[in-house]
Lab assay of single mutants.
Amino acid sequence: MAMNGTITTWFKDKGFGFIKDENGDNRYFHVIKVANPDLIKKDAAVTFEPTTNNKGLSAYAVKVVPL
């Protein structure tokens, strides 16, 4: 089920960042999981599918909501 969130941290040079989800949890995401990576920036609103990996909470099918 899709969730909403906000990008809180973005490491462009490393290709990953973190999203604060609607429950207040931080989720890892990688640029290859983003549909529109050219719009990635700190504080951008996103929708995504929540999941977990071996390191904890993460996100896939991430879409940055255009302003």
Rank of each mutant, 00 (worst) to 15 (best):
M1C: 11
M1H: 14
A2F: 11
A2C: 12
A2N: 10
M3K: 05
N4G: 09
G5K: 01
G5N: 02
T6A: 06
T6L: 08
I7M: 01
I7T: 00
I7V: 09
I7G: 01
T8F: 07
T9E: 11
T9V: 15
F11S: 05
K12H: 09
K12G: 08
K12V: 09
D13Y: 09
D13R: 10
K14L: 10
K14P: 05
G15A: 05
G15Y: 05
F16L: 03
F16E: 04
F16M: 05
F16Y: 14
F16R: 02
G17Q: 02
G17N: 00
G17D: 00
I19A: 00
I19Y: 01
I19T: 01
D21V: 02
D21M: 02
E22S: 10
E22F: 06
E22R: 06
E22H: 06
N23H: 11
G24S: 05
G24N: 07
D25V: 08
D25T: 05
D25S: 07
D25A: 09
D25K: 08
N26I: 15
R27Y: 11
R27P: 00
F29I: 03
F29W: 02
F29E: 00
F29T: 01
H30Y: 06
H30D: 11
V31P: 03
V31S: 07
I32M: 15
I32C: 14
K33I: 12
A35H: 11
A35W: 13
N36L: 04
N36R: 05
P37L: 05
D38W: 15
D38E: 14
D38S: 12
L39S: 09
L39H: 10
I40L: 12
I40T: 03
I40K: 00
K41C: 10
K41F: 09
K42I: 14
K42D: 04
K42T: 09
A44W: 04
A44C: 09
A45D: 08
V46C: 09
V46M: 02
V46H: 01
T47R: 09
F48L: 03
F48N: 00
E49P: 00
E49G: 06
E49H: 15
E49D: 06
P50E: 03
P50A: 07
T51S: 13
T51Y: 14
T52F: 13
N53K: 06
N53F: 09
N54F: 11
N54Q: 13
N54C: 11
N54P: 12
N54W: 12
K55T: 08
K55N: 10
G56A: 06
L57D: 04
S58Q: 10
A59P: 01
Y60C: 13
Y60H: 14
Y60K: 15
A61S: 12
A61F: 09
V62C: 03
V62E: 00
V62I: 14
K63P: 00
K63G: 03
K63F: 11
V64N: 02
V64L: 05
V64Y: 03
V64R: 01
V64G: 02
V65N: 11
V65W: 12
P66S: 12
P66N: 12
P66K: 11
L67C: 12
L67D: 14
L67H: 13
L67W: 13
